[in-house]
Design a protein around this nucleic acid. Structure first.
Lengths: 213, 213, 213, 213
DNA sequence: AATGAATGAGTCTTCATTCAT
DNA sequence: GATGAATGAAGACTCATTCAT
């Protein structure tokens, strides 16, 4: 039996390929990266690639799934804490921000790539996955009397997610004035106000850095 | 001298090329569209293309600029009206929504295309262009005592723009639950609350369709 | 020593591989069939294939030989009977026709495959094998005064074989008008006339179906 | 206007490509010949090939059509003569033999190639084209009292064609004993007898070379 | 003997761009 | 200015065969 060591080896190879792809994509974009350059960097033969991935586009499915898993974990970590809903929300937004930051380059690549059906499905599914816990958090906050939603929690959750991944992605990517930390603070405060949190509580949870000029 | 008629002819040709490109891109994406198919549709020779555009990617610069101009006009039309700032903001958001809707397909194409430096520059520039008038509207609203910003107007403007182009783009593209009209209403109300507009006034300007469950 | 069971096992494996190849070739042609698909269907490992066959092309040698054996048996069965030479010839042609029918798909595949030297050799050899007994039958028929050959029996035998394998193959393959049974009858009668058999005897041995229009 | 010389140039290029293909195919077979080797031999760029042919397989359509045209001309030349039907038939068979001889190599290639639908259609069509005049010749011969067919002329025509292209092809290809001229004579005599031509007349039209051993 | 992961040369085809006319 | 034939580099993917286990 040679299976004893084949599995870890498989896993290692796949990881090597994925890592190489991530690096090449970040550098040259999806279309600009050839399978040849990926295998060269991973140190395997051309044909080996197709032992691990159906085709070039399939790499994106994996890469996207990885990112989604990380986003999901970031959210869950914040929500699982023992604290008032609004405080947990602030933490959740912060974690999300950090995650966007971590994956900024790959997010850009994924946006660039012509999205096949399967890739789209993963993405939409991902949105749903993230919106679930976030929606529940908003519902809890409303029950606790901390949020004053005027739309169903799930809808508000989608709104917030959009705001946080796309907006922050852009902030980081295009260096909109007042990006970075200030953007996080500003956006968080904006969200809290949109959720009907009172001004003093907002100042408490998330002190404003930017002085309203 | 035949120049007298060469200029209008040049313009017509360029337009024909641009129109053809728009149609092909919308159908097949940027990478999926060949220069050959564009010139065929425009009814000119292959080589002629390069008399009007440096290369294929350059088409995007023009297409992007066109969209930006349209967005800008949509915004200005609303802001120029004679009405309170908050009412003008609601109208502006609605116009923006309509513009996103109109250009959805091309926006997607532009996102897909590998972004050369020049294309990026146009995009960032565009954001700035839009943020200008919007920021001034927010400032006016604050002066009128209608908005209660806790960040500089320009920053808030960027926030709103992001919310409205990316979010709505996604809503239309991925059919997030409660997309379409309801999304516009929901997002508008969220924005108004974030700007500190009082509940009765919000109901006035933008009656809620979705009943908070 | 485990060799006691290795031999039957070897034989079984080889047969399994050959059967799988026949099925795949019939479906997808020679070039269109990968060794991978053959071993998958045969339920053995990729590398095992090369323990039984030098290479992919070598399969054809075996397959061809099999077919030849079947043709040969079909011929011998008819010739060995106890009957006049002309009647045996009619039966031989019928058997040949049935054999072509049975192996039609593989015959086509074999024609397609690029013929290495060895494959050619098998084919020529096969013709010779078939021409032997058929030539002797013709000689007997001449001795019996039933055939009136004006070429050596072996040459006539080659003529008949060509007529019967290629012609009938084409008839079946390309659906020439009046293919199938009628073709068999027509060709048989043509052959009998070519061999100088008298009209009434021909009608006896092989009644005409097609009315000469 | 540059059209004046573009057309002859196009034609010359196409011919060059076709010639190169013929040479390469004859040498290495269809599957064994790469487009690269063809363009190299024709002295044009890789991409140029696809300006003249849809794809590699399409070459066969042209090559096949060429051969068919030549066969057809060979037949017509004999049939159009002013002579008795049986004499014209003998001439027709001789011309056909020469044509098979000329195109032997390409016929082999065409048989090898996996035949797409379009290619098959050309082939079947070709058979029909050839069978037409030949069938009419047989009918004329019957009317003149020279042939005694016991199947419809068109069917007999197909029979003869098969006999003459496939059989002779094999004779030349596999060097069956008594190939070449003797084969032509033998086959012709066989055919004449099958058509009911009397022995003295046969000896007249086509003196036997092979002494029946 | 059997396995099956790994190899890498080789295939067809596309297409942005150039340039002689 | 306009043309469109020609270019040739580049790309994704396949698959017969090998070889360490």
């Amino acid at each position: 039996m040679t299976d004893g060591q084949s599995d870890p080896r498989r896993r290692a190879r796949k990881t090597a390929l994925l890592d190489a792809a991530r690096r090449r994509f970040a550098q040259d974009g999806f279309a600009g990266t050839s399978v040849a350059s990926i295998v060269r960097e991973a140190g395997v033969a051309q044909g080996t690639f197709y032992l691990y991935f159906e085709n070039k586009a399939h790499l994106l499915v994996h890469l996207r799934a990885e990112i989604l898993r990380d986003f999901s974990a970031a959210l869950d970590r914040a929500i699982a804490r023992d604290a008032p809903a609004d405080a947990r929300l602030v933490q959740a937004l912060e974690n999300l921000y950090a995650a966007v930051r971590r994956h900024r380059k790959m997010l850009r690549v994924i946006r660039q790539a012509t999205s096949g059906d399967e890739i789209d499905r993963v993405w939409v599914e991902g949105r749903r996955v993230l919106a679930g816990p976030l929606g529940r958090l908003l519902a809890e906050g409303r029950a606790e009397g901390r949020f004053d939603l005027d739309a169903p929690p799930s809808f508000s959750a989608h709104l917030l997610l959009s705001l946080f991944d796309d907006l922050l992605f852009d902030a980081l990517e295009y260096r909109v004035p007042a990006g970075g930390r200030a953007t996080l603070r500003g956006a968080t405060r904006f969200v809290l106000r949109g959720l009907g949190v009172a001004r003093p509580r907002i100042d408490d949870l998330c002190p404003s850095t930017a002085r309203a000029a």
